[in-house]
Design a protein around this nucleic acid. Structure first.
Lengths: 367, 367
DNA sequence: AAACGGTATGTTATCGTTAACCTACCGTGG
DNA sequence: CCACGGTAGGTTAACGATAACATACCGTTT
């Protein structure tokens, strides 16, 4: 009895061996309908012996669902995206769905490819956590219009039938900047403006708002990006953006006394640039990051940053998506914005003083 | 003419609109067979108007291939895995395959779930880059036996019909340790032994070999793991392992003068523990990591580490897999081990002296 | 004894696409 | 004028699983 690995085993093969019809095998495998105990056991035994593996294509085709969800992220190495995906997976797993992740490397073209690929393979729904762009938004709208359930995370794009989860980054940026202002800083730089996003970046708008509200002038030369060569920007290259941007700021005649970076990687790059220049943090320059990635509490000095409830954003997006998959696909958009939380560490306040800052404002968390 | 997003558009729908048969539509969409130019254009126009999306399930079912490859990784946030996946994607994309990534969170159970999920959905092949375990190896063997092309990366498991790509970590561990020995260190610790892997970890064996070869005693108390609570170990928790392990070593009466960490995250944790203890690196304790993740050149001090050609491992695994998918699935195993390269930075040699170390051994790279 | 509901199967048709085969037309070269 | 090869398309039958329906047998209940 030689194995013939050429042709995969089908229900019909098992049925022949077990002297029943394929339908009975199907029932036995899925536990649906009536099957005599002995029959079921015989069928399952044969299936195991023949190393049967169900054909998800045929199954999905007939059942019109694959119990599969796709997630598109821009950078697989980004701890923020990683944490999102954990939240997503937690929820999906409880409901028996598999998660397939597609990486777009922050390119709009590959974003679209990922959408298409997932839609073609009839994922039951798609979670999108990449940066928005005109072309990808358009394709996304087509998908949603054609009935594919979609849930967006932190994506600046709204559609009446796509759910949306995000963090209140405007407020986060505002609080980060206010924290620096409260510490007495007046010349505060911003690192991480990119060409395509321009000024729409919410955490940057929060920075502007805080500056304006406290009557501080916003100097254009204190607002820097990276080299802006390409849009491709994995984690470690945003770190370069931070390094280069900080280097630019350090060359100014009147350099800033504090900087707010678009994310923690960028902030880490800035930390390095400052240290290379022989300056002290936070005494000479204070630094605030964004995201509170795990590494933020392990840099030296540890990094003051803004934490967004990352895993919760993932799990909420998944819950929204499942509700849409299993309910009405045309139901109105669900939307949820999570509050951010300032986490004060040594990059803005010397270790010894951290405690007192906390007491002055109970809103602030200390790590 | 209202849209009916309920039922997705099929070839038959387009055929009706364009006054041809579904077969002609199929030919027009795929560019196969003869189709009159005008017909093709009419068909394509109708398809676009109707927002047609091909059904990959039906297509895959009929064609017996999905042009899809699955990849299983243990930790999505691990830059090493990220870089592997980039290598994989590069190659797959050139050949028109999509990549779906499944994350197992370093759990054997979820490893198996990922395999099953990918096999069920009839991925044309699977790339596995998770840690080996008994149960997952068994399931993997079943899959391979049933004809699914599988390509393994850095996984200590061999099968006659599964290709294997890895780095020569034995040699890497040997060279890292030898480097420390050459610098005059005699008491060298190892951080990162885990309960399940035990002593099979190749880079640890390299450590042992180097110590023995140079006549240095291997002291059991210098070999530490982390808290070993769970097997789940994303990047930042291996960092904790490094911190905790180093803390243990620092409490010894006679502490080591150098440590070799199982990977860069672990090494970063060790760096932090040493700095917290007020000791200098490398003067008091030298540290070597493994993997050369992007952050390794941005820590302070920068991290001496062992670089493995990561992206190449990914692309080679993908090439092996494609060869198997498109050729004979029963072809004998291809196997390739990549050489590692010691990268000397400040955590073992003070910045000023790095140059001279390089000259004494042209094998060593300087970053 | 007929009717009924529960149990255990078998039959048929279909999901959407495409490989394989078949038909038919056209112009051209022998 | 016919055979032939190229072109343009249609027809049929799967791919593998399962929903929907049909069958058949049992033991009860009325």
């Amino acid at each position: 009895m030689k194995k013939q690995p050429k042709k995969p085993v089908t229900l019909a093969d098992i049925a022949a061996q077990a002297a029943v019809t394929p339908m009975t095998v199907s029932r036995a495998m899925n536990g649906t309908g009536y099957v005599h105990v002995e029959t079921r056991e015989r069928v399952l035994r044969v299936a195991r012996e023949m190393n049967y593996r169900r054909n998800g294509l045929a199954r999905g085709l007939k059942r019109q669902c694959t119990e599969t969800v796709g997630m598109v992220i821009g950078d697989i190495a980004n701890p923020f995206a990683a944490e999102l995906s954990r939240g997503v997976r937690e929820v999906l797993e409880q409901h028996g769905y598999s998660l397939f992740i597609c990486v777009s490397e922050h390119s709009a073209k590959e974003d679209i490819q990922a959408f298409d690929s997932l839609a073609d393979h009839r994922a039951d729904g798609i979670i999108v956590a990449t940066r928005a762009s005109k072309s990808s938004n358009e394709r996304l709208a087509e998908l949603i219009d054609s009935g594919v359930p979609v849930s967006l995370i932190g994506r600046d794009f709204r559609h009446p039938h796509a759910d949306l989860v995000m963090a209140d980054n405007l407020k986060g940026g505002y609080e980060a900047t206010s924290h620096l202002i409260a510490l007495g800083h007046k010349r505060i730089g911003f690192i991480g403006i990119s060409l395509t996003e321009g000024l729409r970046l919410k955490r940057f708008q929060g920075y502007l708002e805080a500056m304006n509200e406290h009557g501080l002038p916003v100097e254009e030369q204190l607002i820097v990006g990276g080299r802006n060569i390409s849009e491709q920007m994995p984690g470690y290259s945003t770190e370069e953006m931070g390094y280069d941007g900080m280097a630019k700021l350090l060359q100014l005649k009147r350099r800033p006394t504090a900087v707010f970076a678009r994310n923690d990687y960028t902030a880490m790059g800035a930390l390095n640039a400052i240290k290379r220049a022989g300056l002290r943090i936070p005494e000479d320059i204070a630094v605030v990051g964004y995201d509170d990635i795990p590494l933020a509490s392990h840099t030296s000095p540890t990094l003051t940053t803004v934490r967004q409830p990352t895993r919760e954003q993932g799990s909420t997006a998944a819950e929204f998506l499942l509700r849409r998959i299993e309910g009405d696909r045309e139901q109105p958009r669900a939307e949820k914005a999570f509050d951010c939380e300032l986490v004060v560490r040594e990059s803005t306040v010397p270790a010894a003083q951290v405690q007192s800052v906390q007491n002055s404002n109970p809103q602030i968390a200390i790590a």
